[in-house]
Design a protein around this nucleic acid. Structure first.
Lengths: 336, 336
DNA sequence: TTGAAAGCGATACCAG
DNA sequence: CTGGTATCGCTTTCAA
């Protein structure tokens, strides 16, 4: 394990030129079988490891990607990261993992790092809201989960509207009319689309929107916890709750537990995105499941595909929407 | 946001030499205030971003670290990663995240990548068992959580023995004598030390070891689940269980739930490492808590410290042991 | 205080 | 098929 041996050392030892060693190592050119073997033997003997950076300076490709997420400890993001990193690895790329705390300025820092390091491309769950910001990117970027319309970039998102609509419709079909939603900020499509889905399902079924039933906070567990408590304190509490992401749902489950309310009996609940507690409690909580790992793999594949066709026509931005699935368990009571 | 502007462009535009630009940018040399300002102005105008790689080729420092973990989706590792990445960021390093699936060969792949890319150092939760392997490292490495004696590397570990001992003693003090352990493989210190702690506590209190009460599987949830079911099927089931890591504990909790056994009433339980379910269930499960995030930060700090004193005396390997804390909740029944 | 020039370790073009 | 060499973008002597 050394890295202070250079291509020159190999060339000298093998009695060939550096050009030849380079050819052998990259398997590109025609090299006689004899020299090839000779070089390879020396490479092994000397334990030579090529310096990627030196090569990058010429090829202009670093074989490095970056994946940028708001929070590395949220299992959803971890799953996306894993998908990205795995595909990247298979295709010969190494991946930087950045966590921005959902802060625009931290994200900026990382963009600069990425530029300085010349990463080939970026998988991004971004904090910036302004499409103009993204338009300035002169590196291949795939947006994941959040998509900014008009930014001109490719994206992999999920059917937020459809998922929320299905979840709400499901509650309605089971006879619920007093349905609350606990969701995050309406900054990105994840928030807005889920909220629209909820709204639309109610409207389509002639149910009026009650502002008290709509809790817009952040995407964290505590919002789920507090909002649930507030909801259940209302003069006329909702009979069902739609928790619009994994952490909020966990908060809701905890709050209901602390309030001694039984899910599926006292209150019905549907979550968005899988989470530990939803799977654990009895009855298990129905959730809209989304393909988290696949979002990562898909994004990485799109990105790498794009890198290959650098010169190609600057085609229109491609937005891929992955489907979601409503998984029904016993957390919704049938009201007839 | 561009990266096709080079130091030459800046030099030309500012009517100075590249050497001068370099000096200004690195704030090293004495440069007249006038030229400094002039250069800085051009840098801003041209939106110049220096190419880190080119610099690295000369300085022999890449300002890149790698953190290698067995599994990126285990919250324990995520927490270590976060700690490492955050400290690295503060100190001006970017970090590669690698996940090895606990496979020696995958780990090897990553080591080669690290060499090719010339990372400055590595924070490693390793899969290799052989100290000889680690001895060959010629890069600064900090081992985390698992330590291989005789490998000659620095490490940050936790007091596995003490934690396990405390946990078991706690059960004994509450009157338990039929105490089971569910743990992982005895490959690394994490497994062996926790098992020793359990053993020693029993011995110190004159309790004989019962082989049926000792379940050695892997570190995953399913081991906790299956082993618990087997334990409770014994003619004389244990009155208490010590679950030796976070996932095993979650498995145990699920199994007990499925067996309709109440924690702290029918069976007592102590876990090792925090986990979602242990915090959720009532009564909350007592656990040995370890400073996961701090393990990451500590390791990163040690690593970066080490990088600074490259030339310094190759001091003896330093092994830092962080303490753990037994957090007692209602999951242990008092048998008198 | 500043500039010229020699590399760093690889690739790739052009000859031979 | 093989070798010489310019080059990539930057740092760092050495002179001026």
């Amino acid at each position: 394990m050394t890295c202070d041996i250079t291509i020159k050392d190999v060339a000298k030892q093998a009695n060939v030129s550096v050009a030849t060693v380079s050819r052998v190592l990259n398997g590109l050119d025609r090299v006689s079988d004899q020299t090839r073997k000779k070089v390879l033997k020396v490479v092994k003997e000397l334990n030579y490891v090529p310096n990627t950076m030196a090569a990058s300076m010429i090829t202009k490709q670093t074989q490095m990607l970056a994946v940028v997420v708001p929070e590395i400890e949220n299992p959803f993001y971890t799953s996306v990261i894993k998908g990205t990193v795995n595909v990247a690895k298979e295709r010969g790329y190494n991946t930087f993992v950045f966590s921005t705390n959902d802060s625009e300025s931290e994200e900026d820092t990382f963009f600069e790092s990425s530029l300085r390091r010349n990463v080939d491309g970026i998988v991004l769950i971004g904090a910036h809201k302004d499409p103009v910001f993204y338009q300035k990117m002169n590196k291949p970027v795939i947006l994941v989960d959040r998509y900014i319309d008009g930014c001109g970039l490719d994206g992999v998102i999920i059917d937020n509207f459809g998922g929320a609509y299905e979840a709400t419709k499901y509650l309605i079909e089971y006879g619920h009319r007093d349905i609350a939603i606990i969701t995050g900020p309406q900054t990105f499509n994840d928030g807005t689309e889920r909220y629209w889905g909820y709204q639309q399902a109610l409207k389509d079924n002639g149910i009026e929107l009650v502002s008290d039933y709509q809790k817009h906070g952040d995407w964290f567990e505590n919002n789920g916890y507090q909002s649930t408590k507030e909801l259940m304190k209302l003069p006329k509490p909702p009979t069902a709750i739609f928790a619009a992401n994994n952490l909020i749902c966990q908060g809701t489950i905890k709050a209901l537990r602390d309030l001694d309310l039984t899910i599926g009996l006292d209150v019905s609940l549907v979550g968005f995105d899988a989470n530990d507690l939803a799977e654990f409690v009895k009855p298990r909580v129905s959730v809209v499941k989304r393909p988290t790992y696949e979002m990562g793999t898909h994004a990485a594949e799109m990105l790498i595909e794009k890198l290959k066709q650098v010169e190609k026509n600057e085609s229109f931005p491609k937005k891929v929407t992955l489907g979601v699935e409503l998984q029904k368990f016993g957390s919704v009571k049938y009201l007839g």
